[in-house]
Design a protein around this nucleic acid. Structure first.
Lengths: 208, 208
DNA sequence: TGCAATATTGAACACTGTTCAATATATTTG
DNA sequence: CAAATATATTGAACAGTGTTCAATATTGCA
């Protein structure tokens, strides 16, 4: 039964074709300007065809979200695993997160800001496993900092991970949504990284 | 010339009528579902009428943003001015900000997440004065903490204000965009406020 | 070749923001 | 008061949106 296998492969190819076209438009034109009709015309298919592979637009955006996470996970948590010192590894992860967020604002929006992705997950009754995995790795890193004596033994892993995550997310999202323009600093990016360093300096003093 | 004054007043009344209808729909149905036609039909006017008072939808949303800020400024920064101790005042402001953000997610989105408001400001070549004022007050509070000996004298006011702002903004926005669902904690709100308290405890140790 | 299964289409539906000539109302002038 | 002017308001039209579904085209198998 090689035919049904080929059919399945062809289906998957079209699905990928849609996803890649969607990603191109999404990255160059942003969330608001990514329409089903634009995607369809880019790959020379009818708009209806997209609905044969994705239930609705949110599910397609969730697929883009997954792809973004796939890339990010690799470049973010995997690459810094080489750093032996847990505190330095934690700092490197934070800086990497911020850098990724400001370099890829559209992807970042999909991963951590837009709710359409969470809506798509809720309808499928699925868990936000990508986010959970990222936070899981962060918590492991915090735990390693505790074990190495950098942080107190009685800190709460959940609270501490949220503290770290929300700090870098806060800086990243305020920058991406143009809220930092009220600061007169010429070099906004340098300003953000310096602020992040202030944060790192206070957690070593405060949590030690 | 009482007639032109009355005309001006009537114009302002219609403009307010539009704004209030827009606010009602915006608060109950959210950003995505607030359409010009819905607003128009609610006040029994034609869609075209709205464009006689607001250049486009972004300008109308900016007006909603302004209204939200007006209310927030009062309830947030003014109310806590009674607290004499600058550090306690700072903590109260942070908790108040978080509470406001989770109680008024739509308004919060308009004020600190959506870019349509910043776009509207950019076109009018205006500054984000509401944001600048809020941060100005935050910086004054930080300065008072320095003067009172809570924080070191050599800290940077810009960096420290961003540190504080992005921390509370990070927690607020992650909650509002449903990203905190990966934490198994039953009481999410308590979890956020506890995390904020961890932050306050580390800044007093670290910045002192 | 004929029949069944699958794939694809594109028109249709109910929306969206925005514009603008036509119309209605109100004010001023002769 | 009537005519002319100025202002206010309309609603159809335009180009777009997500989504559905009967009709059509393509493919696989007997």
């Amino acid at each position: 039964m090689g035919i049904s296998e080929r059919k399945e492969r062809e289906r998957e190819e079209v699905k990928d074709l849609i996803l890649n076209a969607a990603r191109e438009i999404f990255l160059s034109e942003g969330y608001e300007n990514t329409s089903i009709r634009k995607i369809a015309s880019k790959i020379e298919y009818s708009p209806g065809t997209i609905y044969l592979h994705y239930k609705d637009k949110n599910e397609l955006l969730l697929a883009l979200h997954d792809k973004a996470f796939e890339c990010k996970m690799k470049s973010l948590f995997i690459d810094v695993q080489d750093i032996a010192d847990p505190l330095e590894r934690l700092k490197a992860t934070g800086r990497s997160y911020l850098q990724y967020g400001i370099d890829n604002p559209q992807d970042y929006e999909l991963m951590f800001i837009l709710t359409c992705t969470m809506d798509a997950l809720a309808i499928k009754e699925e868990f936000w496993s990508d986010g959970a995995m990222a936070i899981g790795m962060l918590k492991e890193n915090v735990k390693a900092c505790v074990d190495a004596g950098y942080f107190r033994k009685d800190i709460d892993l959940d609270e501490t991970s949220l503290l770290l995550w929300s700090q870098v997310h806060g800086i990243t999202s305020l920058y991406n949504t143009e809220r930092l323009n009220i600061y007169t600093t010429e070099d906004k990016k340098g300003f953000m990284f310096r602020t992040l360093d202030v944060f790192f300096s206070i957690i070593t003093h405060g949590l030690a």
